[in-house]
Amino acid sequence: MQIFVKTATGKTITLEVEPSDTIENVKAKIQDKEGIPPDQQRLAFAGKQLEDGRTLSDYNIQKESTLHLALR
């Protein structure tokens, strides 16, 4: 499925993911596309910060959802 990640600079990244993917996997995909190390990424959805060990389906993130990326 496709999801979107909006960066602090307003850029939107499109990612191909599975509901079973962990947040860690998603951060690795962002690193592949943007070169941002996962340990510098903070992802949020619906106002909640997402934890590495959880999956997209844990957070009820569905196709075409938009996550927000902040850098630490």
Rank of each mutant, 00 (worst) to 15 (best):
A8C: 05
T14W: 09
L67A: 01
K33V: 15
A28R: 09
Q62R: 14
N60S: 11
D21P: 01
E34A: 10
A70W: 13
I13C: 03
D21W: 14
S65P: 02
A28P: 01
T66F: 06
F45D: 02
L69Q: 03
T12D: 05
E64L: 13
T66K: 05
F45H: 08
F45S: 03
F4E: 03
K63T: 15
L56S: 01
S57F: 11
P37Y: 05
Q40N: 14
P37Q: 13
E24L: 11
H68D: 10
V5L: 05
E24P: 04
L71S: 07
Q31C: 04
E18W: 11
D39A: 11
F4C: 03
D32C: 05
Q49C: 07
G35T: 04
I23C: 02
Y59E: 03
K63D: 13
S65C: 04
V5S: 01
E34Y: 09
Q62A: 08
D58P: 01
S65K: 04
E64A: 12
L43P: 01
I23Y: 02
A44F: 13
K48N: 13
D32T: 09
R54P: 05
P38E: 06
R54G: 06
G10F: 05
L50E: 00
A70N: 07
S57P: 03
E16P: 05
Q62N: 14
A8D: 08
T22F: 14
S20Q: 14
S57W: 10
T22G: 04
S20P: 06
R42T: 12
V17E: 01
D21H: 15
A44H: 09
D39V: 08
V26Q: 00
R42L: 14
K6N: 12
R42G: 05
L69R: 01
K33E: 11
Q40S: 11
A44P: 00
P37N: 12
R72V: 14
I61G: 00
T12K: 07
Q49E: 11
Q2F: 09
K29M: 09
V17N: 01
T9V: 15
L43K: 00
K48E: 10
A28N: 10
T22A: 11
L15K: 00
E51K: 08
D52P: 07
L15R: 00
L67R: 01
D21G: 04
P37T: 08
A70E: 09
V26K: 00
R42W: 06
G10A: 13
I3W: 00
G47K: 05
E16Q: 07
K63Y: 14
L15P: 00
P38A: 11
Y59R: 01
E51W: 05
Q31R: 08
P19V: 14
S57H: 15
G53C: 05
I36H: 11
D58I: 03
I30Q: 00
Q62L: 13
K27L: 03
A46Q: 14
S20E: 08
K33R: 07
Q49L: 08
R54K: 11
L67M: 04
D58F: 15
Q62M: 12
F45M: 05
G10E: 09
D58W: 13
I30H: 00
D58H: 14
E51C: 05
Q31H: 09
K33S: 15
A70H: 15
N25Q: 13
I23R: 01
E64Y: 13
T66Q: 05
Q2Y: 13
A8G: 10
Q31T: 11
S57V: 09
A46N: 13
H68I: 09
M1H: 05
T14S: 10
V17A: 06
A8L: 12
R54I: 09
I61V: 07
F4D: 03
Q40T: 13
Q40I: 08
E24V: 11
A8I: 06
F4Y: 10
T55W: 04
T12Q: 12
G10L: 08
D39E: 08
L56P: 01
D32M: 14
K48F: 11
E16L: 15
L50G: 01
E64Q: 12
Q49A: 11
V26Y: 00
Q40R: 09
I13Y: 06
T7A: 06
T22H: 07
I13K: 02
S65M: 12
N25V: 10
N60K: 07
Q49K: 09
D58E: 10
T12V: 10
R54L: 08
K27S: 02
K11V: 11
K27M: 04
T14M: 07
Q41D: 01
V26G: 00
Y59M: 03
